[in-house]
């Protein structure tokens, strides 16, 4: 276990060490103290290490993560785990807007609420939100899965491509080209798998509804002009 206190060393040192193959090859467990909302903590990791951050983080925490597990005990700022490729990012508090933006792979778990545009342009990752998600979540999401145990804000799944959304609570409104679709066996398996992966054994997998793309906006049609 290696402890890094951000009150004592600059962010640059922390990230440089987390990028250094010699250090991450030797030390599998890292702990970060006093993050105090600083931006860009533990970005660009590319090794199977675990980084536990004691407190709140600012923008882009765990951005572009590969292979690593990053766990935040507090709230996370804008763009949490943006463009994550693989690995696992867990936040125990809330996540600000654009959580998991354009993430290609891996698992993002938010135990609190996620704000607006959660999973925007999602490209293949899985996102599990224990609380609710804000408006315009999964905007333009292309691939991957978003599972929301609470409610979803307005405009859910606007201009959705092939990503699949599961919501247990109330959906305030669906965005353009997003429709409710029947839950098949594969969807029930997906929900169970996502809940298990996120470690949420107390959530009933039965209560989820599926939302996906109606694929009406996939090609330009002048009749759709009102939806653009």
């Amino acid at each position: 276990m290696q402890t890094v206190d951000l009150d004592a060393v600059p962010l640059r040192d922390l990230n440089a060490r987390l990028h250094d193959p010699a250090q991450v090859g030797r030390i599998a467990d890292w702990r970060v103290l006093h993050p105090k909302g600083r931006h860009n903590i533990a970005v660009g990791l590319d090794a199977p290490v675990t980084v536990r951050i004691d407190g709140h983080v600012g923008y882009y925490c765990a951005g572009m993560n590969q292979h690593a597990t990053v766990e935040v005990s507090g709230h996370a700022g804008v763009g949490l785990a943006e463009n994550m490729m693989s690995g696992r990012v867990v936040v125990h508090g809330n996540a600000s807007q654009s959580a998991g933006a354009t993430a290609h792979g891996g698992l993002l778990v938010i135990h609190g609420d996620a704000a607006a545009r959660c999973a925007i342009s999602l490209k293949g990752a899985d996102i599990v939100v224990r609380g609710s998600v804000g408006p315009m979540s999964a905007f333009m999401a292309q691939a991957g899965r978003l599972l929301v145990c609470g409610d979803a804000g307005d405009g859910l799944g606007d201009s959705l491509y092939e990503a699949v959304l599961y919501v247990a609570g109330r959906v305030k409104g669906l965005g353009a080209d997003c429709v409710e679709q029947p839950m098949e066996d594969a969807d029930r398996a997906s929900v169970a798998e996502l809940l298990a992966a996120a470690g949420l054994d107390d959530v009933d997998p039965a209560g989820f509804r599926r939302y996906g793309s109606a694929r009406e906006l996939y090609t330009f049609k002048i009749e759709n002009v009102g939806a653009y």
């Binding site: 931006h39 923008y59 804008v78």
Partner: peptide, 18 residues
């Protein structure tokens, strides 16, 4: 998808540098 305006851009540039 995750920034608008110069204040956010400054943070995005720092991320890419980091």
């Amino acid at each position: 998808p995750d920034w608008t305006g110069p204040d956010d851009l400054a943070i995005k540039i720092q991320e890419l540098r980091e």
